[in-house]
Amino acid sequence: MKYKKMTVVIEKIVNGGNGLARTADGVIFIPYSLTGEKIIVNIIKKKKDYSFGEIESILEPSPWRIAPPCKYYYSCGGCQLQHAKYSKQLDIKYEIAKELFGGICQNIHYPIASEKEFNYRNKVIFRSENQRVGLLKEKSHQVVDIESCMIADKKINYCYGFLREKLKESSNEITVRVSDQSQLQINLDRSINIDRIAVNEIDSLYINGYLEKGWKYISNKGFGIDIPLFPDSFFQVNYDVTVKMKNILQTKVKGNVLLDAYCGVGIFSFLLKDNFNKTIGVDISKQNIKNANIIKKKNSIENSEFYTAKVRNMLDQFEKADCIILDPPRKGLSEKVKERLIETKNDNVIYISCFASTLKRDLMELSQSYTVEELFIMDMFPQTYHFENIAFLKGIK
Score class of each variant (00 low, 15 high):
256 N>D: 12
16 G>W: 07
329 P>G: 13
341 L>Y: 04
154 K>Q: 12
358 T>A: 09
297 K>A: 08
74 Y>H: 06
50 Y>Q: 15
339 E>V: 01
385 Y>R: 06
309 A>R: 14
374 E>N: 09
19 G>H: 03
49 D>A: 12
286 K>T: 11
374 E>Q: 09
231 P>A: 07
57 S>R: 14
80 Q>M: 10
86 Y>N: 05
229 L>R: 05
338 K>R: 15
253 V>C: 01
93 K>C: 04
338 K>M: 15
275 N>E: 02
375 L>R: 00
323 C>D: 01
237 V>L: 14
170 S>A: 07
80 Q>A: 11
378 M>I: 15
226 D>F: 11
212 E>L: 04
385 Y>S: 15
210 Y>G: 00
279 T>A: 13
328 P>F: 04
314 M>W: 00
261 A>Y: 01
131 Q>A: 14
282 V>A: 01
160 Y>K: 06
88 K>L: 07
367 S>I: 07
387 F>P: 06
197 I>E: 14
95 E>N: 12
44 I>G: 00
321 A>D: 02
57 S>L: 08
395 G>P: 08
364 M>C: 08
80 Q>G: 04
200 N>F: 07
51 S>A: 15
251 T>S: 14
178 V>T: 10
249 L>C: 04
340 R>H: 12
22 R>A: 12
178 V>E: 02
143 V>K: 02
325 I>T: 02
96 I>K: 04
386 H>W: 10
384 T>L: 11
219 S>Y: 11
11 E>R: 15
109 H>T: 07
184 L>S: 05
315 L>N: 05
344 T>P: 02
313 N>A: 07
190 R>K: 12
192 I>T: 00
49 D>S: 13
144 V>T: 09
129 E>C: 12
246 K>D: 03
120 Y>A: 11
178 V>G: 02
73 Y>M: 10
120 Y>Q: 10
210 Y>E: 14
207 I>E: 08
46 K>N: 13
115 E>L: 15
87 S>G: 05
160 Y>A: 11
387 F>V: 13
176 V>L: 15
11 E>L: 06
